[in-house]
Design a protein around this nucleic acid. Sequence first.
DNA 1: GTCTTGGCTTAAGGAAGACTTAACATCGGC
DNA 2: GCCGATGTTAAGTCTTCCTTAAGCCAAGAC
Lengths: 219, 219
Amino acid sequence: MRILLVEDDPSLGEGMRVALHREGYTVDWLRNGSDALAALDSDAFSALILDLGLPDMDGLEVLALLRRRHTLPVVVLTARDALVDRLRGLDGGADDYVLKPFDLAELLARLRVVTRRGEGRRCAQLQLGALVIDEARHAVTWQGQAISLGRREFALLLELARHAGQVIPRSRLESLLYGWDEDVESNALEVHVHHLRKKLDRSLIVTLRGIGYRLEVPA
Amino acid sequence: MRILLVEDDPSLGEGMRVALHREGYTVDWLRNGSDALAALDSDAFSALILDLGLPDMDGLEVLALLRRRHTLPVVVLTARDALVDRLRGLDGGADDYVLKPFDLAELLARLRVVTRRGEGRRCAQLQLGALVIDEARHAVTWQGQAISLGRREFALLLELARHAGQVIPRSRLESLLYGWDEDVESNALEVHVHHLRKKLDRSLIVTLRGIGYRLEVPA
DNA sequence: GTCTTGGCTTAAGGAAGACTTAACATCGGC
DNA sequence: GCCGATGTTAAGTCTTCCTTAAGCCAAGAC
């Protein structure tokens, strides 16, 4: 994990560099804001530790400029204790805040908190050839075209798509649309299938006479 | 946005409840750890504010149990000033902590920081095409024009915007505006949606019949 | 070939859900 | 405690989706 440390105080910076290095981080230590911004363009860092009191420019300014391009985790260091400044820092895009003087252990803890996110962002998108089903958006795309489906149609297609290539018995599809108990002795299911075929493609859903339906997986 | 507040001190808790409510949050206030854990199973909250000094169990224990199941943003409140305790809190899974006594504005700022992290967003300003939402200032801009929204309207829009492009089920929006207990058997939600559409744009919020709503992301 | 069975197609009717509007309640600031 | 702003309730209208039903078609059995 590579960290960019921006701090103009030599002894404090050195102490942090050593401590971070000891923790296993790779550290790039810069002393001013413009160098920092240039370095951040390289896009190689996992986090930024930023002192607000820099010789050339205000740390908050660095932060604002950074935020136009990156979403890098940022921990801000500051000597200012005024509440207003702290709030400005937080709302301005810092992920966390440490007041000087601080204990190194605390800085490290906050760094851990800030960097340990970003995993587990799964996109629940089901793709089968020209058919894309986005469950989160409740949206369906066919050959790049957005298709609008009713609730039942969507549920039906989703179930078929989840087991694409497998036969789903009629009974299961019916109990999916309606509760197990409430029986619909009509052809509602077939009508929905019909609509799906019309909106998508005729050959996408295959009928197994007397058994059920199957979604054709693309070749 | 719905917050679970866990705090045993009556007056402090009440103060926070009022302040949070005024910000537009829906607040569920519980006084002990076991109730909190039970409530957290419902999965309806956007964040947790947790006092570490609880009557029945240690707050850190609550945190540890919570972390086995959820990745909910957590802000910890503590009277303890010992560094060790703070670190234990952070490494134990808290996203941030506030030392008592604290200023409410700071708590709110930290809450904002913590809740917007899940979306990979770093800045207090959320921009979606012509729509700009300033979370800290409670201000909304549409095509450069400032729009004035009520608390509920703002909360609703914010929630939709945070998950822009995704369907938010009605049930979630309802429990977000009103707690579980106070059930609204009326169409308040729809009325708010109506007002938002009127103030912004008709096509911005898409209805998914029988499911929920979705904020359309700009092309 | 024709009969039967199950599926397809179509259109109409109905009902659930959403929209709109306005009046009524509630909250917060002065 | 009053007033304005904000939220909620309620009623009527509208719309979309779902179901129903009736006739047609295709496949397999005889």
